[in-house]
């Protein structure tokens, strides 16, 4: 979907002022079109807020129903990897924000490099997440027949891990899409500069990336820090 929005073509419009064309970095997209695209992205992110909101709602309702189990189960998540991943993702947001700035001032090559850094950090995040999944799987924390959780709170703990896998799974899916989009844009930028990949689309990719980051910012305390003291 992001690609669809980002790549919706810039139609020539009667009321488009030609004045913007001489500004570096803005050449490809007239300002009015940029604002349409950015606004469209924000509306899309609003829908995404509600989409993830359901997961947070499910989390809240289930945590309210099984407080002790959530506390116990949360202690079985790997807080070190979770924290590391938060740091990785926050850093990737900084590189993405800088990439957008670079594209805006017409520094295509710098923007491409920063985007490459961003997507590398994204891949690192996914790799760490994958490793965490693997460990949790071998520890029988994956809900289902093989789920095993010692102690009295197994039922609620299974619900916790169900929510854990569903929410982080949807988050990882979004991040993977982001990696794909940013990678594609970085590639086009590196090959053809801002003529090939407009700054306006990069702004949108940046908004999407930051949104996925924000989702994780809330998932981190919700899943890893329920009860550590």
């Amino acid at each position: 979907m992001t690609t669809a929005i980002a790549s919706a073509e810039a139609r020539p419009r009667a009321e488009t002022p030609a004045a913007a064309a001489d500004k570096p970095g803005l050449a490809a997209t007239p300002p009015l079109r940029r604002r349409e695209m950015a606004f469209g992205m924000w509306v899309f992110l609003t829908t995404e807020t509600l989409f993830f909101g359901v997961l947070f709602f499910a989390y809240a309702a289930m945590r309210f129903a099984h407080p002790a189990a959530f506390a116990a189960a949360s202690r079985h998540t790997d807080v070190a990897m979770g924290t590391l991943n938060t740091a990785v993702l926050l850093t990737s947001s900084v590189t993405m924000a800088l990439a957008v700035e670079a594209a805006e001032i017409g520094r295509a090559r710098i923007a491409a490099r920063l985007m490459t850094a961003t997507l590398a950090l994204g891949i690192v995040f996914l790799a760490i997440k994958g490793y965490a999944y693997h460990r949790e799987y071998t520890e029988h924390l994956f809900p289902g027949a093989a789920f095993h959780f010692a102690g009295p709170l197994a039922g609620g703990a299974e619900t916790f891990f169900w929510i854990y896998f569903v929410t982080t799974g949807f988050h990882a899916l979004h991040l993977a899409i982001g990696v794909g989009v940013v990678g594609f844009m970085a590639w086009r930028l590196a090959r053809g500069g801002l003529a090939a990949q407009s700054a306006a689309s990069i702004v949108n990719a940046g908004l999407y990336w930051h949104f996925v980051d924000i989702v994780w910012i809330f998932l981190y305390p919700a899943l890893y820090l329920v009860s550590r003291s």
Partner: peptide
């Protein structure tokens, strides 16, 4: 909020 204000 930091991400929203400074990056977005």
């Amino acid at each position: 909020a930091l991400v929203l204000v400074f990056f977005m």
